[in-house]
Nucleic acid binder design. Structure first.
Lengths: 344, 344
DNA sequence: CATATTTTGATGTGCGTACATCATTTCCGG
DNA sequence: CCGGAAATGATGTACGCACATCAAAATATG
């Protein structure tokens, strides 16, 4: 069961070459004939050699340098992401991994693109970027990867790019969950479902919308959605549009906020004094949302774990940079559902 | 921002002692005066020294030996736990961490106790045990810890013992979630809630029962629970008691299975042809449960992530054994809720 | 066949810690 | 103030790998 560890020495012996040659193959250094490369690789596979990660990092001497690029600006969820990046950076400083955090103007595509364009392998080994779906960003990502940087997208994906991994959730599925919660929690009543997004142009909000509509149309035809209104992810704007919605449509039985701005929305719902009458579903477990859930102003929250996402991004980048392996099950970000009883 | 790493050398210089003395303090070796110990520890704190984990593991030479003790027998959830232990063991073999897996007769207290009693620090450095609430187990755990072994409980806790950590969920809260789901998903109908547990003597099942009753009584008084029946966590027994329940109580509007045996229960519900009429909530996302959720036979699943629990146990044991730090937020096991739309 | 070129071997160093040994200093009681 | 014990310093080795250098061998080229 517990065979002794395989070291480079064993591989060299098995392949009938010297340590130096195995080293050249392992680190893709030039000056080895193809036949020899094949021999060594065969031995590597046969013995299932895997480098001792600790010895490797120690020997490499230099720490891994990772870069996180996130939107600046006040959004409780992003605040949680940033906080986790900071604390993870703090912890990993002692594990040969330096993490730098850079902010870019919220969803300003060209700014993100030019920040990515400015990165070279001299600056860092890997990048995690919250990628807006804006012109030029995809090209900048592809160029980064072509330059030899390792890159993952975080929270917001750009599937058509060459990013090596996406750390985040499937927002269509998240929208479906929200839709089903609205349908099931509204106890069979008929009426209108109000939909609030941050902006129509945000890919993730639109995907949530799509998923929600899918489920409502298919399984809850007695619930009809109102046109999506935009809260711009600001508390004040969201409060304003929510007030207008509630005033204009007395037959609203459910409300789904696909974006941020929950502080404002919660305030309006509290004033409306309608907890229990309108089923409300929102995203992300920020402090205000949490409070609303406990009070019963919100019924359910669909959520992604910001801390898990950051840690996952770091692990994936480490694996990419060091030629390690990604444990897929560990890196799958869950679509979490919170009721007042399972708050973490 | 990026101060250079602090090494033992720096600490020695700051404390005005030699490397050897710092080493003695760090590794709690004897032969250092208290005043000197204090001096060194002050320097350690002042410089915020943290050992380079990679160098440390490399130097330690010997791999960490962890032991997992889990109940033998067929339970889909435990199968998932075991599978994850195996795959984690496989991965960590190359990271200086050996994991041994031992089985003990399911919930046979004395057997668990004697297995724990037989362990000495020569056998392993840390233990994770699925601890049944049986006579002698608590004492055996306390003795293990007293012997210098590091020990965490997994899935099933023994809060009164000296275990150093519990990896698992709060089952009362899980029961509350189930209760709220039953209440909210039953769309306001009145009637009876059927409750099935594996056994009244299992602490976690009883805790779930407690939580569920709390919520139903407080927030859904129109739903009245039936006495708990035991399915013994076997598919056949569970099917049998479920059949009897459904036959005896035509006014059942909801059913909560707190234990295992879901394969049998699903079969009965399918035959009863009542999907949509009876709200059903169960635990753990095993293959059969998953299928039932997709079909609509089950409405919601309350769940803990077996893979996460195993990885968490390993990380915590590593930290305990190596004097590292436990990242609490990372090790909090979530009470997950699954609908058909957010299946992983 | 001689020379140039490529490929391979031999060998060494450094990473930061754990752990061991032995020499030296400090301390304490008598 | 002496002797023995305790405390501390000095030093070295090992861990497994990355990376570098130079010599030796194999191969290619004209």
């Amino acid at each position: 069961m517990n065979r002794p560890r395989i070291r480079i020495h064993d591989v060299a012996a098995a392949a009938g070459v010297s340590l130096a040659t195995v080293d050249r193959v392992l680190n893709k250094r030039p000056g080895v004939r193809q036949v020899t490369v094949d021999k060594v690789e065969a031995a590597l596979r046969a013995l299932d050699y895997r480098p001792d990660i600790h010895a490797a990092r120690l020997a490499r001497g230099q720490a891994l340098r990772l870069m996180f690029i996130v939107p600046r600006g006040h959004n409780s969820f992003m605040d949680m992401v940033v906080a986790e990046i900071r604390s993870t950076a703090d912890r990993l400083r002692h594990e040969r991994c330096d993490i730098e955090l850079r902010f870019v103007d919220a969803f300003d595509g060209p700014a993100v693109a030019s920040m990515l364009d400015a990165l070279s392998p001299d600056d860092c080994d890997g990048v995690a970027v919250v990628a807006p779906d804006a012109p030029g960003v995809r090209e900048a990502i592809d160029a980064c990867v072509a330059r030899g940087l390792h890159l993952v997208t975080l929270v917001s994906d750009l599937p058509s790019s060459h990013r090596q991994h996406f750390v985040g959730i499937d927002n269509i599925a998240a929208g479906r969950v929200a839709g089903r919660l609205l349908g099931r929690l509204s106890a069979g009543r008929s009426g209108r479902i109000a939909l609030i997004a941050g902006s129509m142009t945000l890919r993730d909000h639109m995907e949530r919308h799509l998923g929600c509509e899918q489920v409502l149309r298919a399984d809850f035809p007695h619930l009809r959605t109102l046109p999506v209104v935009e809260g711009r992810d600001f508390a004040e704007t969201t409060a304003q549009v929510a007030r207008e919605l509630l005033a204009a449509h007395p037959d609203i039985v459910g409300l789904y906020n696909m974006g941020a701005g929950n502080r404002g929305l919660v305030e309006v719902l509290r004033q409306a004094g309608a907890p229990g009458r309108i089923v409300t579903v929102a995203h992300e477990l920020t402090p205000h949302v949490r409070q609303a859930l406990v009070e019963g102003v919100y019924d359910a929250i669909v959520c992604q774990d910001a801390a898990h996402e950051v840690r996952s991004a770091v692990r994936v980048l480490q694996a990419l940079c060091e030629g390690g392996e990604v444990v897929r099950s560990q890196e799958r970000i869950r679509i979490e559902v919170y009721l007042k009883d399972n708050l973490p």
